[in-house]
């Protein structure tokens, strides 16, 4: 099972605009626009490497949601996107 980790979270510049966030990533010099859940994913992955299933459970508790298969797919897509952007890294179980 894969886990993800936001290893460079502390380097990000984050500005809060009520319920939205602009995030500057120094390594890529890109600015990302995130909603609250998008940012919360990074926050949770900063704490420890987390699997998709555990992340979804934590998010559903935090946002008081009922997780279903579609929610799982959406979060998986966000993780793929974040990984492609270099915001998070995949951690193999064997590691």
């Amino acid at each position: 099972m894969n886990s993800w980790y936001s290893s460079r979270f502390s380097l990000l510049r984050i500005e809060s605009w009520e319920s939205e966030f602009t995030v500057f990533q120094p390594e890529s010099e890109k600015t990302h626009f995130l909603n609250e859940m998008g940012l919360q994913i990074l926050v949770m992955l900063d704490q420890s490497p987390t699997s998709l299933e555990v992340l979804c459970r934590k998010l559903s508790e935090y946002f008081t949601l009922q997780p279903d298969a579609q929610f799982l797919r959406q979060v998986a897509q966000i993780l793929q996107r974040y990984e492609a952007l270099g915001l998070i890294e995949r951690v193999k179980e064997s590691e």
Partner: peptide, 28 residues
């Protein structure tokens, strides 16, 4: 909303990406 204004300004600027963090701070 200020977040929308940020998004519109950053995408509207000719050289936002070139200036990197300086542009992020300036638009903020």
């Amino acid at each position: 909303p200020q977040s929308e204004a940020f998004l519109l300004l950053a995408t509207n600027a000719f050289n936002y990406e070139v200036l990197g963090e300086a542009a992020f701070d300036a638009v903020t």
